[in-house]
Design a protein around this nucleic acid. Structure first.
Length: 259
DNA sequence: ATGGTAGACCTTCTA
């Protein structure tokens, strides 16, 4: 079973690029971030034609997440629990049906810049809510994948120029500690389990020639419950997609489970 | 010294 995550930076501006990748990669499940549209504007028919069921948690202009699955999705949850006043669409979760069901969550974790503002506080509060919700989900003791744009650079090795990120919310000690705390619950970083090496990135900024200079960072992650980690067989970063026409600043990441 | 690009959309915000 192949499960993908991709921050597409506007699904409607990126539709041809995204469909092109889906036609060749054909993941069984995918979570998309930054779709930047309300539910009604999501191009569901285009994905249905490829054989996917579609679930959307959209928002105008900013954020917005979606989940696509070849088999029906059950128990769909839109929005991260823990703050009824949070209006930002950054979380979607469902159980992917099949002989061995998998619970999949797609997240668009807040960027948090600039540090020292309410945006950074919101990021850390969101990570605390994710921590509490993940602890609840782990109680099911089932295959669980929490994938998405975490907006956290876990280690210096995950940035081409770590010194350039020292003042950034993505590389703050608090952000990195919160990401570690998720793993300390019993979640495994799929990249690390598959012996991913330094210098493998999932994001290159549009600005200042970041892509041609390979000034990348690894911020798109997949965390797995023990029941999923025991079945992990592959982890792919589709780096070449960054060099295509009209690319997102993030590339697709694919997790393979023996399910 | 504070650039550079991309997307949504009303002019500036977010990344």
């Amino acid at each position: 079973m192949r499960l993908a995550t991709w921050n597409v930076n506007s699904i409607n501006a990126r539709l041809e690029t995204v469909l092109g990748w889906f036609e060749e990669a054909m993941p069984d499940v995918a979570v998309l971030q930054e779709i930047k549209c309300v539910d009604e504007k999501f191009p569901a028919e285009a994905f249905e034609r490829l054989g996917y069921n579609v679930a959307v948690h959209g928002q105008k202009t900013y954020n917005g997440v979606a989940m696509l699955s070849k088999t029906p999705m059950e128990d769909i949850r839109r929005g991260l629990p823990g703050d009824d006043g949070d209006e930002q669409a950054r979380y979607i979760e469902a159980v992917i049906s099949g002989p061995r069901p998998v619970r999949m969550a797609g997240i668009y974790l807040p960027n948090g810049n600039p540090v020292g503002t309410e945006k950074f506080a919101y990021k850390l509060a969101w990570m605390d809510r994710l921590h509490r919700h993940a602890a609840e989900l782990l109680k099911y003791e089932e295959p669980l994948v929490i994938a998405g744009d975490y907006n956290v650079i876990p280690r210096p090795e995950d940035a081409d120029k770590p010194e350039g990120w020292l003042g950034d919310a993505l590389f703050q000690p608090e952000s990195r500690a919160a990401y570690r705390a998720l793993q300390n619950l019993g979640l495994t970083d799929a990249f690390m389990q598959m012996d991913g090496s330094a210098g493998e990135y999932t994001f290159w900024d549009y600005q200042a020639g970041a892509w041609p200079r390979n000034h990348g960072i690894r911020i798109d992650h997949a965390l797995l419950s023990p029941q999923a980690a025991d079945r992990l067989t592959g982890f792919e970063i589709h780096r070449d997609v960054r060099g295509r026409e009209k690319p997102s600043d993030h590339v697709p990441v694919v997790v393979e489970l023996n399910i």
